[in-house]
Design a protein around this nucleic acid. Structure first.
Lengths: 377, 377
DNA sequence: CTGAAAGCGCTTACAG
DNA sequence: CTGAAAGCGCTTACAG
């Protein structure tokens, strides 16, 4: 791209001059406007554009058309693989639909979240897909009134009307207990980092409900919460799992199976147990939650409950596109959990892996091949 | 943000009208221009702005100033945790410097790469940080001439003058052999997926060089390459590792230690070995490369060689900011590998973990606390 | 300290 | 099919 005579990048007027036509005609020829332009004129314009190394200026176009193909994404933290997968799904779908992604991580800081949101409005994004730590409904409504379409996932913001994609965390807790009981376990423990998010509350509620349904007593005592708070990275989850599991081993009152609040915590649990000479799954079964990609890669491959991250991101993007077409339309999509039996849960008193579990070969999943049942809202 | 009388978002002119001043004055008051505005006028402007729910329009400003605080990022694939960490470092630094990130994944498709690059130019980004599968130097030069600053990482693009951050892959291969030999191993094998990228070539070269320095024969025979090509996700690396390790076990000619081309491959190796009843590290030691966050989370915690992902991203962003200040300045920063001994490599014939290895407790790393030696270019 | 005016690069009714 | 003109929202020399 050579610079035009005025020392800047060539514009439609440089092309116009060169072809002896008006800027309007160049614009029509180059912007796929559908507006009729005679074949020879069009050809000469295209040739001149190529010769001058013309690149359209999206900023000029955006200002004039007052519309944007950019969308914002604000997430707590990319160091959590769950959010990475959400972003991957979201970006794949955005790309397919012709949108560009402006990324902001908030590190769970509400001030950063607010700043990122305002910045996105400033940039005139068409919409934003967000997962907020402490959502400011008033701010969101303000930006919404200013034309920014919103979609949330894994969270409902009180006082804000917008589409969202949900997940049935309670059903996941229930499913965990069902599976473990079905594999002959009745002495169960739930292990988690401090329960901050509503999703965790729901997951535990599902676990407790499961215990009750199966007539397993002492529900509350079976919930073990770590003492280490988040510090931006996900290491604290591993650490909580490790400490809690080690404590369990030292107490001499080991359960036969533990359900971890997420896969990362499950890894900590396995570490803590193994360090005490307790084998997984021979001595204790461990069930995770999330189904992170690498949960299929470790040894023993982690039995877990899938939280469809990629699908959540892709669906959020689809709902946003829908909102941008029809501002009044809001929809709620809810995903259901799915059991992924692998090697870390074993039927009680058996040498074989849990029934239904893949044996040696971990499932080779691509980012999008798993199909999740969707619950109608 | 209420809409202004004209049915659109309020502009500086709505404020100007309300305050009985000119648009120029509003602009000066609101844009931190440093230009003097009398205190009472400023106050009334600020009050009116707040009352009208004014949000500055960055598109108008950008068009007028002909400068942008957006930067583009083009990566092969977020499903590779290495790139996720690079992005995390890059975004953290960008945020600190006031830049916004436009993200594009290319899925290793050169056409998508070219389209993403053109799109970024169209959007008038100040610069871009890229890792390209098949870099088109002519295109990059063209966009560079059009004003886009480039920084590459882990790759040097022939025919393009730009800053970049490098990593000494060859030294990493060397370091791997040194460590393994130092732990009493001489029967070594290098396991990798098909060697496409130059970085892999260099890593293997370092491994071979290491064998030679230690007088270990049959270098080429000790390099095992998988047959499964990339399909967008990273699962093929695990699979190659698994198959190769299983083959090794079945052949009955097991080495005492294997060096995997990356941590993900190492997980595959561990899976393949374990499935054949071979224990890691008791029977065979396994050394990885990358030091992904979750390599510290698995059991046994993976001994590996660190490839500073977060630092690479942050450094790339810093180099880009430098380039944007001074277009003629190009610098090359090179990171050196660092050994991270954990539990998957054990001194030959010993019950203890490799000397220097953390024992029970995996190191709790935050994303940025590790310090890497930088090699002067 | 303030304002009138031009202009960033583009699109699009309007007129022909 | 083509062009002249206005305008998207802002900034910034220039003049006072």
């Amino acid at each position: 791209m050579a610079l035009a005579p005025h020392g800047r990048k060539p514009t439609i007027y440089d092309i116009a001059r060169k072809c002896g036509v008006s800027g309007a005609t160049v614009s029509r020829a180059l912007s796929n406007s559908g507006y009729p332009v005679s074949a020879p004129v069009r050809a000469s314009i295209e040739a001149a554009a190529k010769e001058l190394g013309y690149t359209p200026n999206a900023v000029g176009r955006m200002l004039r058309r007052r519309e944007s193909m950019d969308i914002g994404v604000v997430l707590p933290n990319l160091s959590n693989p769950y959010f990475t997968s959400v972003l991957l799904g979201l970006e794949t779908e955005a790309h397919r639909l012709g949108y560009n992604v402006l990324l902001s991580s908030s590190f769970r800081d509400p001030d950063i979240e607010a700043r990122a949101l305002r910045m996105l409005a400033t940039k005139q994004v068409a919409g934003a897909i967000v997962s907020l730590t402490r959502p400011d409904a008033a701010l969101l409504r303000e930006l919404q009134a200013g034309g920014v379409g919103f979609v949330t996932f894994d969270q409902k913001v009180e006082g804000l009307q917008c589409s969202r994609v949900e997940f049935d965390f309670e059903a996941a807790g229930l499913l965990a207990v069902d599976h473990l009981v079905e594999q002959g376990h009745r002495d169960l423990v739930f292990v988690s980092s401090p329960i901050d998010r509503p999703s965790r509350v729901a997951l535990r509620a599902g676990f407790l409900e499961g215990l009750e349904r199966h007539g397993i007593p002492d529900g509350a005592d079976r919930c073990l919460l770590g003492g280490i708070e988040s510090e931006g990275t996900e290491g604290y989850e591993v650490e909580n799992g490790r400490l809690l599991a080690a404590g369990l081993a030292d107490s001499g009152r080991l359960p036969t199976a533990v359900f971890a609040a997420n896969d990362i915590t499950a890894f900590g649990v396995i570490q803590g147990l193994t360090a005490r000479g307790i084998r997984v799954p021979e001595d204790v079964s461990v069930l995770g939650f999330d189904d992170l990609p690498f949960s299929a890669w470790v040894t023993p491959a982690l039995s877990t409950i899938a939280h469809p991250a990629f699908e959540t991101g892709a669906m959020a993007m689809r709902l946003l596109a829908e909102t941008l077409k029809d501002r009044d339309r809001i929809s709620v999509q809810k995903f259901a959990p799915r059991l992924v039996p692998r090697a870390s849960v074993r039927r009680r008193g058996s040498d074989a892996p849990a029934s239904g579990a893949a044996t040696g070969t971990p499932d080779a999943r691509t980012a999008s091949d798993s199909k999740y049942r969707r619950i109608a809202p």
